[in-house]
Amino acid sequence: MRKFVDRTFVVLSLAATVIILAILFVIIGNIAYHGTERLSWEFITAAPESGMTAGGIFPAIYGTVLLVLLMSLAAVPFGVLVAIYFAEYARPESRLYRWTRMAVNNLAGVPSIVFGLFGLGFFVQSIGKAIDRAAYSGRLVYAQPSILWAAMTMAVLTLPVVIITVEETLRAVPRDYREASLALGATKLQTIFRVVLPQAWSGVMTGAILAISRGAGEVAPVLFTGAAYFLPRLPSHPADQFMHLGYHIWVLTTQSTNVEATKPLLYSTVFVLVVLTFLLNITAILIRNRMRKWAVR
């Protein structure tokens, strides 16, 4: 009897695990199967044509890459500094530590659509307006949705990802390294930037990769901060609007005038986005696993 109950528990929990993995498999399989049907070199390098029922997605790929690069420029240095504060300077009992910790945890839980509203209210309507008033004598340049503001909004959203990943790696650097450096007369600042941080380089990389993967896939924050349905030109100025892979998927699913004609295009676009985010995530997982082994050693 006891053995039977035992077995049931193990089998039930195994069944749940298998169900989740099966769902993952079905989703990926479905997307890979239908997504590769129409996939071609032309699809990746051409612009959408005839009302998004033909052509490719190059402007969306270009816009997404530009967005995540701009985002990383802001989020990574900032996130690394906050992580350094958490791992090297903060005293756990201090008020600043408790509040910053709470702020970062909270930031990670803010719904992405609220970031979109924040980007619109703060970057576009306030900062953008202030820049226009100061530098362009009120002409409308930055006080409208653009790739710059979308990237900044996304940077705020991905900040916790960078902070948490980098902090974990900094903490994994053995204490001996710091003590040896300090014992040799190096200051704390020298120790952090010349001894600890170079050892935690893989963590900075992982943080950046995870942030980029998140930034490439999130749509809600760019809905009203800069993403466009369709643009004839690639963005070339920070105040230009841009096309975004995730946003393009949403446009194809919901705004299409000819569902059957866009369906293969939609599947291929989804496939490209999934491959992109998976490659980034797998790279991050691999780096992290190696890093953990290194930390144990």
């Binding site: 993995l21 993952l24 479905n30 997307i31 490439a216 896939g217 699913t253 989804v270 999934v274 997982i285």
Partner: peptide
């Protein structure tokens, strides 16, 4: 593997 599921963008889950 389950972390990979977390990595699928919500717009992709939505279109699936």
């Amino acid at each position: 593997a389950i972390e990979l599921l977390a990595g699928i963008p919500s717009v992709v889950l939505g279109s699936f």
